[in-house]
């Protein structure tokens, strides 16, 4: 092949990221007539976390990488806008927003902040939506979360959210979370259902899940800008189309995977609660301090908050418009 691309995902082969990469690899290798080859490195063989891997991407020792918004927050703090709770109503809205100019705007900022070395290619999903889950009680409204110790990653925004709900944020490394539930070091977490079942957290007592859907688990896909621009335009088009196929695959994969996960959750004796629209409004109201915290404390926070809200509104209007004809 003329162009050998090295793609890294820090997850494993059961993850949505891997599904996306498999689709991408197949697409670009076939559509470039073998001019591009993609070598997959799944796990932590080349680099182990967001900061490291983004630096490797800058150096050009990694060509393609996927991070969550938390993983990129230390370098590009504004990507945390994707963690802001309750701004995207559902999958349809989120997918419409992430297929539009929002990604292009963010690409420009990330390029500028990385000396033109990191190019955001697309934003997909990795694991559906984050929900509040706990070992203690059924949570129907924000006040039910009061006093619970909720595990978060070491990042400001999720900690602010947990505080806004009256709970206490506790940073625990992911591999230690299981025993921490067992011993009561933490009493809850904010995760997607596939992660909860993948780690068998129900066996450690995590039995109550509230489908508040407070954050879309966005997956940001980047490429080394030079590796991209070095290609002739026809191959760049193949790459861009390949990332589009990857995005579609990661939109679909969690929906398929969560079916089994919810069945397993029920079988393990888990209890699922779907908040009423009124209760969801309460959650959103309780989360208000997070929005102002984000606008005040995060670089370009105001800009991205406004952009995400306006793009979401646009998507809601377009879908409402479509309903007029689709429902008749």
């Amino acid at each position: 092949a003329d162009f050998n691309l090295r793609a890294v995902a820090n997850s494993n082969e059961n993850d949505e990221d891997y599904d996306g990469l498999v689709v991408f690899k197949d697409f670009v290798e076939a559509h470039s007539n073998g001019k591009i080859s993609v070598d997959l490195f799944i796990g932590t063989q080349l680099c182990a976390n967001g900061t490291e891997c983004l630096q490797a991407l800058e150096d050009g020792s990694v060509d393609i990488y996927i991070s969550t918004s938390g993983g990129a927050a230390n370098m590009f703090p504004y990507v945390q806008v994707l963690d802001l709770p309750y701004l995207l109503r559902d999958d349809r809205i989120a997918e419409a927003v992430l297929s539009g100019d929002f990604v292009r705007e963010m690409r420009a900022d990330i390029l500028a902040d990385s000396d033109d070395s990191i190019r955001l290619m697309t934003i997909g999903n990795t694991g559906g939506w984050r929900n509040f889950a706990n070992t203690k009680r059924q949570v129907q409204q924000p006040s039910d979360l009061k006093g619970l110790k909720i595990r978060t990653v070491v990042a400001d925004l999720p900690q602010e959210l947990v505080r806004a709900m009256g709970a206490s944020p506790t940073p625990i490394p992911w591999p230690e979370l299981y025993t921490s539930f067992q011993t009561g070091v933490v009493e809850g977490s904010k995760n997607g259902i596939t992660d909860i079942m993948g780690m068998k957290f129900t066996e450690a007592g995590l039995k109550y899940v509230t489908l508040d859907g407070h954050a879309y688990m966005a997956a940001l896909w980047y490429m080394n800008n030079e590796a991209f621009l070095d290609m002739p335009e026809d191959l760049r088009r193949v790459i861009v189309d390949g990332f589009n196929a990857l995005q579609q695959a990661t939109f679909a994969s969690p929906k398929r995977k969560s079916i089994q996960a919810y069945q397993d959750f029920n079988k393990a004796g888990g209890s699922l609660y779907v908040p009423t629209p009124a209760e969801k409004e309460q959650f959103k109201a309780a989360a208000m301090p997070v929005y102002s915290w984000f606008e005040k404390n995060v670089k370009s926070g105001g800009k991205y908050y406004d952009l995400l809200v306006s793009e979401a509104t646009k998507a809601e209007q377009a879908i409402a418009e479509n309903y007029k004809s689709d429902l008749q």
Binding site: N49, E52, Q55, A56, D59, S61, V62
Partner: peptide
């Protein structure tokens, strides 16, 4: 040669561990 910096980064990251 582009991978030599990665070698260096992994020394650091190997050590920077709880």
């Amino acid at each position: 040669g582009r991978d030599v910096p990665m070698l260096f980064r992994n020394i650091y990251n190997g050590i920077d561990s709880f």
